[in-house]
């Protein structure tokens, strides 16, 4: 474990050096994600010039939900962006070979392949929106709540990573599975808004099958509505544990049927 932490630090430092080489690219990437998320905010603001609330949620609560959903998403994006490369670079083109001959965990090496600093844009917008909505009275956080908040964000991150990993693992059998990950990943767009606006089957799907609601809306509702701990952050933690172990097991299974493309 310690060895991995030390190695990860080295990888990140190395990656930061390459980032510093092209500061313009870094600025473009971060600005791109800031603008992209801010445009979602513009939508909410414009709608709320017309109406006072949606399904009982006022503007500050909506901004809190939206901002909170960006935190696990951004963190996952920052740390494991390379899962997107599994179908193309790693499986179809045989890039996985170099990971298999090193005495290190393969998933760890995939995560290390890239430190996606663009995601700092997402994280910044998410943190700003959450702080702003709290300052405007959307929720009150005690010290315990802050700790629960951190737990919830981490659990959400695990859920995001797991969903991506499961979708990407299909590429070990179906080579061209980029669109599968893309489509499944974008199910998270559903979770930017209160889940109560959707019909029952979508709510169940987002909770039990592709648990993006467990990554963002349920934990957010704990801080907004003071819903029961078990029914909010409990769901997030359980979903993280189940999806995390399922994803990793599935990934190992896929790895067994990997045959290099040769060179």
């Amino acid at each position: 474990m310690r060895r991995y932490l030390r190695l990860y630090k080295l990888f990140v430092l190395q990656y930061l050096k390459t980032l510093m080489q092209s500061k313009l690219d870094l600025a473009i990437g971060i600005a791109g994600f800031v603008i992209s998320q801010a445009s979602g905010l513009v939508f909410i603001l414009l709608v709320f010039t017309q109406i006072p609330e949606i399904n009982g949620y006022g503007i500050d609560q909506m901004v809190f939900i939206y901002g909170f959903s960006l935190l696990p998403k951004g963190l996952d994006h920052l740390l494991t962006d390379c899962i997107w490369w599994i179908p193309g670079t790693f499986v179809t083109h045989g890039g996985l070979d170099k990971f298999l001959i090193r005495p290190l965990n393969v998933f760890f090496q995939i995560a290390c392949e890239k430190f996606q600093a663009d995601a700092l844009g997402e994280l910044a917008v998410g943190a700003a929106l959450v702080s702003l909505s709290i300052a405007r009275g959307a929720a009150e956080l005690s010290v315990l709540d802050v700790m629960l908040f951190i737990v919830a964000v981490l659990a959400g991150t695990v859920i995001y990573t797991s969903v991506k990993l499961i979708a990407a693992t299909f590429s070990f059998w179906y080579k061209n599975s980029f669109h599968i990950i893309n489509t499944i990943y974008h199910l998270n767009d559903f979770a930017k808004y209160p889940i109560s606006i959707y019909p029952k089957f979508i709510r169940i799907a987002l909770t039990a099958i592709v648990p993006f609601a467990a990554a963002s809306f349920y934990p957010a509702s704990y801080f907004l509505d003071r819903s029961s701990l078990a029914g909010s952050i409990g769901i997030a933690a359980a979903a993280a544990a189940v999806s995390g172990s399922a994803a990793y097991g599935f990934f190992l299974l896929g790895l067994k049927s990997y045959d290099s493309s040769g060179n």
Binding site: S22, L24, D25, I28, G29, A31, G32, F33, I35, S36, A38, S39, V42, D118
Partner: peptide
């Protein structure tokens, strides 16, 4: 002028969408 067209494209898509 830049090699990081992907990052710029995210920027553009958001603006054009809006």
């Amino acid at each position: 002028y830049t090699t990081y067209i992907w990052g710029l494209a995210i920027f553009k898509d958001a603006i054009v969408g809006l």
